[in-house]
Design a protein around this nucleic acid. Sequence first.
DNA 1: CTGAAAGCGCTAACAA
DNA 2: TTGTTAGCGCTTTCAG
Lengths: 339, 339
Amino acid sequence: MSHTNIRSLAKELNLSISTVSKALKDSYEISYETKERVLKAANELNYKPNAFASGLRRKKSNTIAVVIPEVADSFFSLAIKGIEEISQTKGYHVLIYLTYESWKKEQAILEDLKNGRVDGILMSVSSETSCSKHIKSVLDEDIPVILFDRIVEGMEVAKIITDDFESGYKATNHLIENGCTKIAFLSVSTLLDINNKRLAGYKKALTDKKKPVEERFIIQCGNDFKTNYEILKEAMLHSDKPDGIIGSVENLITPLYLVIKDLCILSPSEVKLISFSNLQTAEILNPTLTTITQPAFEIGKAAATILFNALEKRNYNWKKENIVIPSELCTRESSIISK
Amino acid sequence: MSHTNIRSLAKELNLSISTVSKALKDSYEISYETKERVLKAANELNYKPNAFASGLRRKKSNTIAVVIPEVADSFFSLAIKGIEEISQTKGYHVLIYLTYESWKKEQAILEDLKNGRVDGILMSVSSETSCSKHIKSVLDEDIPVILFDRIVEGMEVAKIITDDFESGYKATNHLIENGCTKIAFLSVSTLLDINNKRLAGYKKALTDKKKPVEERFIIQCGNDFKTNYEILKEAMLHSDKPDGIIGSVENLITPLYLVIKDLCILSPSEVKLISFSNLQTAEILNPTLTTITQPAFEIGKAAATILFNALEKRNYNWKKENIVIPSELCTRESSIISK
DNA sequence: CTGAAAGCGCTAACAA
DNA sequence: TTGTTAGCGCTTTCAG
């Protein structure tokens, strides 16, 4: 069947195109009877206004982009869920783009997004991203960009983050209070703001307790599982190995637990563990894992909400938005003094 | 700055719009020098062809939709990753829609997708979906639909699945071989084809080994964590409790492990476990969990590949595609005879 | 209350 | 090799 468009619909009804268009929009200009007729016919003929035609005319796509490094990750997938939920209620469509932690790809994606396909962008930057000119150039096209979780400092855009410094501080303090004296921080990309803030919190907590910050306990991890396993194994084979470990990201958990198991190290008696993580399985690991759990779903919802306000409210200074949603410390077996 | 469009670009170059358009498409009709000039100017003026205008004209969105019940799930997030990867290389854009296991929502989303926003759809149906007329109605608009993992039977569309029957069979057999005589199958929605096939495999394996299929060992689980915890707890408190359990979906793992722990049941000596799962943490659980791991990433890639072929190749009978990618049985501690 | 007409930015048939 | 022109399907002024 030939798809019905507004023209064929108008012809069918013996009305003009503009009347039909207005009737479908429930315009006050159109009589009740006409609206009824139009709606009925539209329904019968299964009329769907073409999204691209209407988008082109109104210069509005009703679509947003989510640009993130990874999707197979419990933080990002929960964030997407929050974003999608808000978008669905607002009648927006959600495009997903993965950067795979590549700065080049991130640039290319943003560049491509300047073509009117989206009204706004939600983004968490790649671990290679240090400069923000690609973001500026999107803003120059009047496309709002909201950064969430992995932000870049030094630019005026809305940012939704957790209290990374405080969380790093809290995690460290928690281990100190549970008797750890040699606490290691597992660091990922030093270009990542979240990594550095968590690390800064770690250092501050040590300093506040008059403990030295030792470089050898700041363990630089890599990107893939095998590398991390080897790095962690080496660290734990050291004669003066850590008695407390802070994992700054979720994907270090599996290699860390494996190393501990393979080296027959006992946790928590020999080494106490805490990690940033949104994994549901934290509570069934052995030992159950103490986590800093980020409000991923809420972050996604907050970011989307701000974006839609930016798109719909006039005179809303969205760039000034700077929301911090606190993370939660979930104490479990891995970090507490075993009896 | 006023966004440059093809008209302003043409004016700038003293060329006609169509010449510019063709030059940008590297048409054979245009001289080398002109192409050079156009490309240079386009670059300098930061010209981006408007996606909606071109889409409207060509009746092609270069966009696909992924319609799934959930994203915070390691199977679906991996599948998305596969889909996104292929889409990026093909220059397609990926819209995500979540049905939250609701048949009504799934219908509404498909209905909305008939408006020319997408060229094709990849979908895994909700657990409430039993009828397929909403899919047919999309196909009637000449929008290809590829079903992956959670398919509906009895309609001619491309389907990418794993060997669910065989996996259910293998899982059951594996437990039988490891000495289990009272094997429970944790069932989810009985409307789901994957659930039923896995269950059928379970029954067949029992029958082949001359074991009875007992209804009380087919445990109907619910949708939320708490419900499942209670259901599993009750099952494991039974005097004649199972000595082997097959989890048909990943999200039953956490409640299951918790029940076992809370009731101080020993696995694998008292009860052996195996579950469908793509969780990386399976290998650090206690006991490490034997899994049927689905090729989620490959399924995503295969589904996307077929869709793009359907969109780009003439005379390709994509509806006949019916791909089965086998799952893998990863034997770990939870299911093997403990010494 | 209804309709005519312009045009969003692009592509593609056809003309020159 | 380049240009003219007619739309894609819709929204929106403006006129009636």
